[in-house]
Nucleic acid binder design. Sequence first.
DNA 1: AATCCATTCAACCGCCTGGGT
DNA 2: GACCCAGGCGGTTGAATGGAT
Length: 333
Amino acid sequence: MVRTPCCRAEGLKKGAWTQEEDQKLIAYVQRHGEGGWRTLPDKAGLKRCGKSCRLRWANYLRPDIKRGEFSQDEEDSIINLHAIHGNKWSAIARKIPRRTDNEIKNHWNTHIKKCLVKKGIDPLTHKSLLDGAGKSSDHSAHPEKSSVHDDKDDQNSNNKKLSGSSSARFLNRVANRFGHRINHNVLSDIIGSNGLLTSHTTPTTSVSECERSTSSSSTHTSSNLPINRSITVDATSLSSSTFSDSPDPCLYEEIVGDIEDMTRFSSRCLSHVLSHEDLLMSVESCLENTSFMREITMIFQEDKIETTSFNDSYVTPINEVDDSCEGIDNYFG
DNA sequence: AATCCATTCAACCGCCTGGGT
DNA sequence: GACCCAGGCGGTTGAATGGAT
């Protein structure tokens, strides 16, 4: 059977919508509601593709759409959400009231991206472009400008200790996933550490500042590590096709039960990972564009684990690594 | 005034996903 | 399970616009 095309090619209008077309579409949707886009053009007397109608309505004609310039708060939110979701514009749009994904996407590409670059921040990874310099990205220089995930209270409340067993479980899963790519000794050393970990969340770079000032960026500095790094987890942009192997059923229940601990652990652990030059070399391909973190997040997603708490702590500053993570610290010297 | 160039953003395109059968 | 369909999504395009020369 031949699949019917989404719209008849012949006689369909393209390009900018006229006022008359808009009125027809608005009138039809108001009368019949949204949906049935494929048949809508005929019924509404429009010579447009159904997709085009849906897009026009969703991005322009819907009454609850706010147009015009983005506020500082909105831009901040977009940057923060982009750090979490990546280019998942619809996911971002859902959290920015009255803005469409298309509008946000455009604004990102035309304004925000440039601002971040101007500030020396990689818009893809949200990491400093001046990686290794550790100078202009001193977070402490602009503590008041940290608008994202600046939840110290959460930090405190999350500061409960991790059991070594949950750490091991998590890393077992990580090892299963990445064993083919990462030196096994590294992970086994970490697993063997049974390190007690605490969570740390940190603010990311202020978004709104980019337009006001380009004098400095506000990522984190480490007093004891040469390179400033923050970890950005793109939880939703992960492709489910990344992994073909199924979750380990033996570990599943325990992992679900320990998710909070594990998210904290993974965040801390990977801070170490990302802060260590030698390991960086060995897993260079994994770390490209923080794909390593993304894929680890994927483990949680695959297990249908609520990622809220993980997202809340998606950035972990290197300088907040505490001494309780003995095994990892020992490994990294 | 004419031309060129950069920027913006509405709209399009192709692919993917989920639901129904 | 295979297939179809509708809707949704992200990337890209290109017309419109404005500034620079």
